[in-house]
Each structure stands twice: as structure tokens, then as C-alpha cells.
Design a protein around this nucleic acid. Sequence first.
DNA 1: CAGCTTTTTGCAACCGGTTGCATAAATCCT
DNA 2: AGGATTTATGCAACCGGTTGCAAAAAGCTG
Lengths: 335, 335
Amino acid sequence: MAVTLKDVAELAGVSRSAVSRSFTEGASVSARTRAKVEKAARELGYSPNALASSLTTGRTKLIGLVSNNFHNPIFLEIFDLFTRGLQERGLRPLLVNLSDETAPGNSVRMLRQYSVDGAIVASSTLPTDFAPAFHEAGIPVVNAFGRYASDPRVHTVGIDNIACGRLAVKSFAARGYRRIAFMGGPEAATSTQDRHAGFMAELAAHPGLEASISFAGAYSFEAGRREMQRLLQAPPAEAYFCGDDVLSIGALSALRDHGVSVPEEVGVLGLNDMEMAGWAGIDLTTIHQPIRQIVTSSIELMMAMLGEPDRYPEARVFPCRIIERATLRPLPEAG
Amino acid sequence: MAVTLKDVAELAGVSRSAVSRSFTEGASVSARTRAKVEKAARELGYSPNALASSLTTGRTKLIGLVSNNFHNPIFLEIFDLFTRGLQERGLRPLLVNLSDETAPGNSVRMLRQYSVDGAIVASSTLPTDFAPAFHEAGIPVVNAFGRYASDPRVHTVGIDNIACGRLAVKSFAARGYRRIAFMGGPEAATSTQDRHAGFMAELAAHPGLEASISFAGAYSFEAGRREMQRLLQAPPAEAYFCGDDVLSIGALSALRDHGVSVPEEVGVLGLNDMEMAGWAGIDLTTIHQPIRQIVTSSIELMMAMLGEPDRYPEARVFPCRIIERATLRPLPEAG
DNA sequence: CAGCTTTTTGCAACCGGTTGCATAAATCCT
DNA sequence: AGGATTTATGCAACCGGTTGCAAAAAGCTG
């Protein structure tokens, strides 16, 4: 049924090695044999079996793409960038949906069985020892959107969530908000913890500010809406830093229903700058996370590791900046 | 570096076949050897190489998941369902992002090289001969969200887009709208064509109605918004059937900006019923597409085909129904 | 315990490729 | 032209598993 090397060799009247060599870049074959082989291959509709060759070459060009964020629309943008970027470099994404799993055992085992050349863990919510487990199992790994650490155990690409937390407080202060609030995502997510930590740290530097803290159950519209509804039972703060855009949009919907005007009475600041944040009618002021750069950089790092598996681990951090839209008061005019 | 069958065999003091058999369900091994083997395997941290075994068994458990819809948030929901469903059945999704490709050649070749056991083409916009190309290359294929045909060449699971077009017109008529409009997605998408055809067909049965037709450039917010802005330069219709929810949401934003009240002055009907359609503040009346059932059914069909590759092709069609929300006038009270 | 069945085991060939090595063919040089 | 190099080719072993087959071991019967 499937046509193999042998069939081509027979038709072309050459040895199997000759066929194999004709299909490998830079192998020692004369132009004449290569031509014969290519002709025969074309006639038979042959294409080499990548899996069989991986057995001897030790490379499958398979990259595990591991994630647990299948409910936040920004991850569709991220998957798009990852899959395109990997494909452009001849790599194939093998997708692993963790669902609610938070231990690495299963995915490590599975990806080892499939001999992936590497794994990209794309998540901002997994525990810090998740990605290193791949490294320990001998799988080159890049942790995209992972927690920044000054002494990373594995390659990490993302933003400094602590700095984001600080940035939020600074922006609030600069715009004259005084009673401010942190409304985080799930408390177990490392990104939430770091943003929270940054928020608190910066708060200490602004004695004039008062802050309140709460957490939503998930990075989702419903969770944000519900949490804001709960908060609105008491007099609200003047500005909320929400854990994420989709959470912010949920919060905004609760504020609107409650007849609270944004940004006059209450300001909202998101994080991510997903496509939807810029939609007319939403117009969310948010901290931009440079996902395109993070993805590109993660893939570059992966490519580098394929050539040099023991590459010394590094953390790549990208700066975030505020995108001014309509849910936060403008900065007072300088002058 | 990697630990193989041979290592385990040596440690356990048995033959390589014995080890192989210990890891295959229902093979002929005594309990005693299996125990020895398992112990040795555990000590060495062995797990069998799925790719090597695929060479002889002819099964990789790899399923190509082919799509080009990486800009419509509903596809995140769809990917979530597919990846979970496949994983639960021990299958591994190999993701193919077509970007703007519309010819099957590349993906067929690639998936053949990786000896996938099957391919799921998940798209409502590809040309009708896309999925059959996999079949012709000997790859079992299911076309999810594909065009319904009474004589399918390959397994097709989805909705009857023609019926959806009719349903839209019927709903408009029942609610007393008279000047109605079809605002489709990209004209080249089969789903757009079918919804359009259904719309026109049903229109013929309602002599009292007047209709206008237009198409947006893509299934996206921006495209919907821009198209509605264009339409609003002339007096608008009373009700629009938009090609898709995200398109509808774009249209709604243009209507709102224009000060047009929905559903009083203009009604909007979407299609898909993605999560976002139900968000407070959007509350889009829409035709529900049962994506969970479509995905589950596609996977079932794939499983069936793995056992019986020449299975006679069938089309599975799921009914759609209107979800009543706030962007269409209610039905007049019966009585 | 012999004789017959059934179960377990190892051998060896195979899956579809790659690659080191020795040899054959082509090319270069004087 | 003849010898020295360089390039091209095929053989055979190997990658990490599976599996048909025959032989060995175990189980059963009387």
C-alpha cells in the first residue's frame, strides 16, 4: 500500500542507500542518480517516512506544545503564532491540552514516547516545577509566558509580572486615583501571585494610597463579572487592576449593569492587550503583553537548543507598556 | 542516553520479545516474567518508543488536526474539545495551521510523512475538494464543520447551512421584519455560500419580504463593523442575518456608534452561539451550532474509521436552533 | 510417570529508513 | 597513458521496536 524506499530503488535501478542519499541534503550522490531517483519517486508518488528516519537520525522535528489555557481567547492568537512559526521552520506541533492537570508526569511521559525534539510549555498559570520536569526527563524545553526568575532552571520567555503589578500602581497614582484595588485571577496561578506581589511592593512606596485585594476564580469573563458584582455590594474602589483582559471585560459588564460610569467613577486596567481589548465598545485600557515577540523568541530559543541541547538556561523578559484607551482617566497634562 | 527495550531485557534477564510482549495488551506472557520486566523497566525509567513500534504495527495514534480558523474565538472552544476528546481516546493531535493556504497538497504530504492514522479537517471555509484529497492519499479523513452534501465523498459532520439560511428568513418573517438583509462572511467560504443560498430560497417563499445582500471580507469583528458602517450610509434594513457571531458583534458595535437602537430599530441575528454571544452586554440572539456534538461525533467517526478504513462515507447533520436573547424582537405572543 | 495439550519463550526476520566502510568509477595530474 | 585523488555507490549493520514460528516449559489426564 504505502510506497517505500525499496520500491523506488528497484524502479530506479539503484541501491536503497542511493535513494536515501538523494533525499538528504548534502549527501554524496551524482546528479545523474539523483535525477533517476527523483523521476522514479515522482512516478510512484513516494515521500519518505519521517518517523522511520527519526529512528536513526534521532530527530523527529516534533515539538510538544503544552498548554492549559483553552478558555482565554488570547491563547488562540498565541496558538496561531506558535503553529505558524514552528511550521515555517519545518517543525510540527504536537498539541497537549492539560485540561485541569497541573502535574507534569503524564505529558512528559507521552512526549517522550513520541520522541519529540523539544517541548514548549505555554502557560502563565502552571506551578514553577512543571517546565523543569521536561528538562529533567531530557527533553529540551522552553517555558513561554512562564514565571520570570533571575536564576531560571529552564529557558523562560515572558514578561516580568512583578513589574506589571508595580506599573499598575504607578499608573493609578499618576492619574490621581487614591483608593485602588487589585482584582487578580486564580490565586494559584504564578502570574497572579507575581502581579499581586508587585502591586503590594509598589504600594508601599506610595503612602497616600489605600488598596484592597481580591481574586476571581479563573481568567474568564464570568469570573470577572461575578467578582465585580460581589465587590459592588460595598462602595467600590476608584480603580481596579484586573488580572487579565477577559477578566476586565467581565468586570466592566458588571459595572455597566450597576450604572457605574467608567472611567469617571471607576477605572479599570487590564493586562494582555488581546485583540478584543481594542474593539470599539470595549476600548479597554490595558497593559500590553508583547505576545508576538514572546512567541518568536521562544521559537528561536527552541531552535538554538536543538543545535545545542545543553545550552545554559536563560530568562528573556520583555517590557510591558500601557495602552491608553477609554477605561482609565487620562494622565494629567504635563506642564 | 535513552533507555531501550534491550536494556530492560538485559536487566530482567529475558529476551527482547519478552519485554515487548510485557508491554502489549493481551500478549502471551507469564505473570512471573511480566513482573520481572516491569520491575526492570521501572528501575531504568523505560517507556516504549511509540514511533519505533508504529513502524511494525502501522499505527501511530497520531491524528492530523487541520484548520485555518485561527482568528475566530469559537475555534478555541473547538480546539479544546478536539484535543481533549482525542487525548481521552489515546490519540495525539498533530496540529496543522493552514494560514491562507487553500490547497491540500502541502498538508497531505506532511501528514503522510508523519504516518498519521487519520486527519480531521476542521473548517467551514475550505473548498469542497480539500478534505477528499486526504482520502485519495489514503488518509482516513473526517471533515468537521464542512459543507453538507447528500452524497458526501468523505465523512462530513456539521450543520446544514442552507437550512440555517432558511431559518433566518423564517425567524425574521415570524417576528414581523419586512426589509431584511443577509450580511455574509467571505464569499469564497462554503458556509457563506450555503447560508446565502438558503436565505434566497426561503425568501422566494415569502413574497412580502424585501432583501438586500452583502458580504464582509472575513469572519472577524473588524470586517463586521466596517461592513455595517458602510451599510449605514444608506437607510439600513430592519434585520440582518450575519454570517457568524463575531461578525455580528462587529456589526452591533457599528450600530451602537451610529445611535441605532437594537432590536427596536434594527435586529441582528448571529450564528454559532459562541461563549461570548451570551456575555452580558452583548446578549446576541443567534443560531446555535452544536459544536460539542459535532466534535464528539467527528471523533467517534474517526475511531470507527481506524477500525474499518473503507467505511462507507456518511454525512452527519445536526439541527440548529435559535437562542433567544436581546438583539431580535421577540416572537409575537401566540394566541 | 508417560503422553498429550496448552502456554511461554527465544530466535530471527522484518518495519522503513540511515550511515560507516570498502570498493568501484570518475577526475585530475604530470 | 598511468598513477594518485577524489567522488559515487552498494553492502551490511543498525535505529527500537513487533511478530510468526518452532522449540521448551508447564499443565493435564489417566
